[in-house]
Amino acid sequence: MTSDATQPAPAPADSERGVRSAVVTGASTGIGEATVRALAAQGWRVFAVARRAERLERLAEETGAIPFPADIVEDDDVARLVAEVESRGGIDTLVNIAGGARGTDWVAEAKTEDWEWMLRVNVVGTMKITRAFLPMLRAHGRGTVLNLTSVAGLVSYEGGGGYNAAKFAEHGMTRALRLEEAEHNVRVIEVMPGLVKTEEFSLMRLGGNAEAAEKVYEGVEEPLTAEDVADVVRYAVTVPHHVNLDDIVIRPVAQAAAHKLIRRG
């Protein structure tokens, strides 16, 4: 029998590992920005990643986050980010928020450029940054990847074909990643929001048409906010590491299902 002296020491609890640290993508607006604020408020060291440098600088001034302007679909940007994070001691958590939708065309009228953009940002970008950070998360011993997807990755709807395709793909990728990384003690979490009223999501999807974007939420009492979703993300990555919240669906009460949204007035 092996003596106690030769037994490997148990992995230290999360609370014994010092400051928690994360990369959060899509950090310049909406759920990504709210997630940076939520984690920073709990003392996390947060690398806030997005393309818009000015917004990141303001967020850094307000939260103490480390701003890093980058486009997650660009290999050089991802490599620079990994190098910067390594130089600052690494991370234990990757929070993939970056993504988005473009257009509401039916498949018969689909715009190729919109579909390519959605697949590139939601799927390929998430893959690239996850692939780049997995060695670091494995080496940490208790790494976490959280992917923010959507209920659009569970149920399709007319006019959502391109976004459905992207989010179904990201959902499938997330499930495969969970199976592949369990042996490395990397937990993989998926958060799937329903209707969330944010500053830019519907505005961007509808080509900048503010009136049309506002109609998306018209009559809906208390749609989710970015802060609601960020609070769920914060909880999911903060619970003890042996707890894996695999799939979290979060919707406003008014959205009982993808096909049932209560509008009043």
Results as ranks from 00 to 15, higher is better:
2 T>D: 14
5 A>H: 15
7 Q>I: 05
9 A>D: 08
16 E>I: 02
18 G>A: 04
19 V>N: 02
26 G>E: 01
30 G>L: 01
32 G>M: 00
34 A>W: 01
36 V>Q: 01
37 R>W: 01
42 Q>N: 05
43 G>P: 07
44 W>Y: 06
49 V>A: 09
53 A>K: 10
54 E>Y: 08
57 E>P: 03
61 E>K: 05
63 T>M: 05
64 G>H: 09
65 A>Q: 04
69 P>M: 08
82 V>N: 14
83 A>R: 06
90 G>H: 04
99 G>A: 08
103 G>I: 00
107 V>Y: 15
107 V>A: 13
110 A>R: 09
112 T>K: 11
116 E>Y: 10
118 M>G: 07
122 N>Y: 05
124 V>D: 07
130 T>E: 05
130 T>Q: 04
140 H>Y: 07
141 G>H: 09
143 G>D: 03
147 N>H: 13
161 G>F: 08
161 G>A: 13
161 G>T: 05
166 A>G: 06
178 R>A: 13
178 R>K: 10
182 A>H: 15
183 E>H: 15
186 V>P: 10
187 R>N: 10
191 V>P: 04
192 M>E: 14
193 P>C: 03
199 E>L: 09
204 M>W: 13
207 G>N: 05
208 G>W: 15
212 A>I: 07
212 A>G: 13
219 G>N: 08
224 L>T: 00
228 D>M: 08
234 R>I: 00
235 Y>S: 14
242 H>N: 07
244 N>E: 11
245 L>C: 09
246 D>P: 09
